[in-house]
């Protein structure tokens, strides 16, 4: 069990970067961006292909980020300049990326088994260091990833408080207002989607290196997983400030992995059921808060009614 938990924690932290990207597009820009399914693979494809051809894993990862940024920008351009509906822009880009990803990889699957990845490099560095006796390599990698994810989180937080970041948030909040305050909403949407998909591609590059391969189908349903993380996180940890919400999104990504891990331990569920489980989790996370709210409201009304009746009765007794 503890290995399952450890695994969920590791993947949760890796996928949290993708969830942060989805948070940027879905919540901050109010743009349901389906590019994610494609750009996640793009990140993995670029990183894996470059690593296989001998590029240093860090440069390969940076290139993956850039590729994701460009993919997001194209979606933004389709929407703003081509006036294509947001959902459709994302779907078009997702489909286009499928072929592009195949082109990048040259085949449907690129294994990284005997290659030097960021994780093998980190692992060998750790084993040779003095601290190896204190902390196992697995934990060292986990902690490093957690630190990287947190660093990205703080960067996102800081960015959203800059003048450009504020303008992007206002674009998602009230386009009319931000245009009347002299901001080019087209440019802000393109930039926002670019950054969002850059994070998604970074996550894809990490996941590819961690699991030792990139597969053309590894992005299927990624947007739903991202949404699940955002929604679960927001519901559990709150959205009072940006700093808190980005924490919540990371937490949501980890909890999502744990829930899936537990679900897969149920006897009659198979690995292939994962997407179904994800869909059910998202539906539950979307519906449950509303059901709970209406239940609370009903109870409040009942209590008010009871109080009212009691007061009336007292009045009646006094009169009698």
């Amino acid at each position: 069990m503890s290995t399952a938990l450890f695994g969920s924690l590791q993947f949760g932290i890796l996928y949290a970067l993708m969830a942060l990207g989805v948070y940027l597009s879905f919540r901050i820009l109010d743009f349901p961006d389906l590019t994610v399914d494609g750009s996640f693979v793009t990140g993995g494809a670029v990183a894996a292909t470059m690593i296989v051809s001998g590029v240093h894993p860090i440069y390969a990862t940076c290139s993956a980020i850039l590729a994701g940024f460009i993919a997001g920008c194209v979606t933004g351009i389709l929407h703003t300049k081509g006036k294509i509906n947001p959902l459709l822009s994302g779907i078009l880009m997702m489909i286009a990326l499928y072929s592009i990803n195949l082109r990048i990889m040259g085949r449907a699957n690129v294994p990284l088994l005997n290659e030097e990845t960021m994780f093998t490099k980190l692992g060998s560095f750790w084993e040779n260091s003095a601290a190896a006796s204190i902390l196992s390599v697995d934990w060292a990698i986990l902690l490093t990833m957690a630190l990287i994810t947190l660093a990205v989180k703080f960067l996102v937080d800081a960015f959203l408080k800059t003048e450009i970041g504020l303008a992007i948030r206002a674009t998602g909040d009230n386009k009319r207002m931000i245009r009347s305050l002299s901001a080019n909403t087209d440019w802000l949407i393109i930039l926002g989607l670019g950054l969002s998909n850059a994070l998604v591609a970074l996550s894809g590059a990490f996941v590819a290196q961690y699991s030792g391969f990139t597969d053309i189908s590894m992005g299927i349903g990624m947007i739903v997983i991202g949404l699940a993380s955002v929604i679960i996180g927001e519901a559990l940890f709150g959205t009072k400030t940006i700093v808190r919400t980005t924490f919540a999104v990371i937490g949501g990504a980890i909890i999502y992995r744990i829930v899936v891990a537990f679900a897969l331990r149920v006897d009659f569920l198979e690995t292939g059921d994962m997407k179904l489980i994800t869909a059910v989790i998202v539906i539950f996370a979307l519906v449950a808060p509303k059901v709970i709210e209406s239940f609370k409201e009903k109870r409040r009304r009942k209590q008010r009614h009871a109080r009212h009746m009691a007061a009336n009765q007292k009045d009646g007794e006094r009169l009698a």
Binding site: E163, L166, A167, R169, A170, D173
Partner: peptide, 22 residues
């Protein structure tokens, strides 16, 4: 912008006639 604070709204308006930076 309803989900943003008063000071953030004012900051957006303040950079109206300037170049928005990081």
């Amino acid at each position: 912008a309803p989900t943003m604070t008063i000071e953030e709204n004012l900051a957006i308006a303040y950079s109206r006639n300037k170049r928005r930076t990081l």
